[in-house]
Write a protein that binds this DNA or RNA. Structure first.
Length: 338
RNA sequence: CCGCUCUUAGCUCAGCCUGGUAGAGCAGUCGACUGUAGAUCGACUUGUCCCCCGUUCAAAUCGGGGAGAGCGGACCA
């Protein structure tokens, strides 16, 4: 069905600089990131995650980038942001820690290299005096308006709390306290990272470069960002059947660039999730329609979809199978943890 | 502490004044049509009306109590 490349080479991935910058929505700044890419060995990059019991494609997209960075020789730090989760009303520290451990196990199952990944709990340093005082200094440097623009989106109807504006300030400080060379996040983290780059120097620290991954569009509509709610997103908890059903019902016009602001989520999943992990994708196709097809790159597949050579229904079958293979280890781990 | 407002379908809300066990839009589900999805037609589903007590033949609606949420309460004008 698909050929795993995670261990060895990788079709387009031998070059570290290419690994670091591929499939990225934005590098801030590209000069700084290029400088890093020129000598990636031992450099530290991170993504912060609010603990979640089940990983979904959103998590996996940044995880793919972390895997890229590891293969390029960098050290990876995964922040299990328990204090952030607490600030976001996600429960007691005990509950949060439990979901964080599940999250960690899933990341490892997904393919992060255990040797080169440092999992850090936010609470292990964010409650120290130095951190607290620096946080207050940052609060002093930051207008309420600015912090509000950087804060995470509120859950429907929720009213903003002071905790919500402290949240992004802590994200900024984390970049310093985790001793990083690079901050990674979805493009939705852009404002936070910009805040960090602007304010860290005010405290006498160095601004770090950032890499922002794209965000996959909503599966069923192709609009905006895919919702992370269960039942809508694709997650480690999906069975093979659920996966097939979700992918089959996905919006998929035979083009890379649908009308208006719409995206083609099926192609996006191939581009950001499948091809980065597999050297080849085999599309099984009934003889009636011409028999199986093989693709070694996203470009080839997308081109065939646009030309009509590859029918969306067949593409979906291959996508579901590939995603299933990617998710299987995490799914097994979840079952084991039950 | 005081005052005002809000609480009805998954979501946004209407209905309350002038009691008769509930509606719209969106979402969702299912068919038709396309070898996917969408679009387009066609059909359909959904509710402790925040809780308790009371008035009444009858309460989402009236009265009392309670809970949750939001906003406001210097000065100036």
């Amino acid at each position: 069905m698909t050929t795993d490349t995670a261990g060895s080479e990788g079709s387009s991935g031998a070059d570290p600089a290419e690994l670091i910058t591929r499939n990225v929505a934005e590098a801030v700044t590209s000069e700084e990131v290029e400088a890093l890419a020129a000598d990636p060995a031992g450099k530290r990059a991170y993504v912060g995650y609010e603990p979640s019991g089940v990983l979904h494609v959103g998590h996996l997209l940044t995880a793919n980038k972390l895997i890229d960075l590891q293969r390029a020789g960098m050290e990876v730090v995964v922040l299990l942001a328990d204090v952030h989760a607490y600030l976001n009303g996600k429960g007691s520290f005990e509950e949060i820690r439990e979901t964080a451990e599940r999250m960690k196990a899933q990341f490892l199952a997904y393919g992060l290299d255990e040797e080169n990944t440092e999992f850090v709990y936010g609470s292990s340093y964010q409650l120290e005096e130095d951190y607290g005082l620096d946080l207050h200094a940052l609060e002093l440097e930051t207008s309420l308006n600015r912090a509000q623009r950087a804060m995470a989106e509120l859950q429907g109807g929720e009213t903003p709390r002071v905790s919500h504006v402290v949240y992004p300030l802590m994200q900024a400080l984390d970049i310093e306290y985790l001793d990083l060379d690079l901050a990674v996040g979805g493009i939705d983290q852009r404002k936070v990272h910009m805040l960090a780059r602007e304010t860290l120097p005010e405290l006498g620290y160095e601004a770090r470069p950032c890499l922002h991954t794209p965000i996959v569009a909503d599966l069923t509509t192709g609009e905006g960002k895919m919702s992370s709610s269960a039942g809508v997103t694709i997650s480690m908890a999906d069975s093979t059947e659920e996966l097939a059903e979700k992918v089959n019902s996905a919006f998929c016009p035979p083009t890379r660039d649908p009308e208006g602001d719409l995206e083609n989520p099926v192609l996006e999943l191939f581009e950001y999730h499948v091809f980065p992990r597999f050297a080849e994708v085999v599309v099984e196709r009934p003889e009636e329609y011409g028999g199986d097809l093989e693709y070694g790159s996203y470009e080839d597949l997308a081109a065939d979809l646009e030309s009509g050579e590859l029918h969306p229904a067949d593409a979906k079958g291959a996508l579901a199978a590939s995603l299933d293979e990617l998710i299987e280890p995490g799914r097994a781990k979840l079952r084991e943890l039950e």
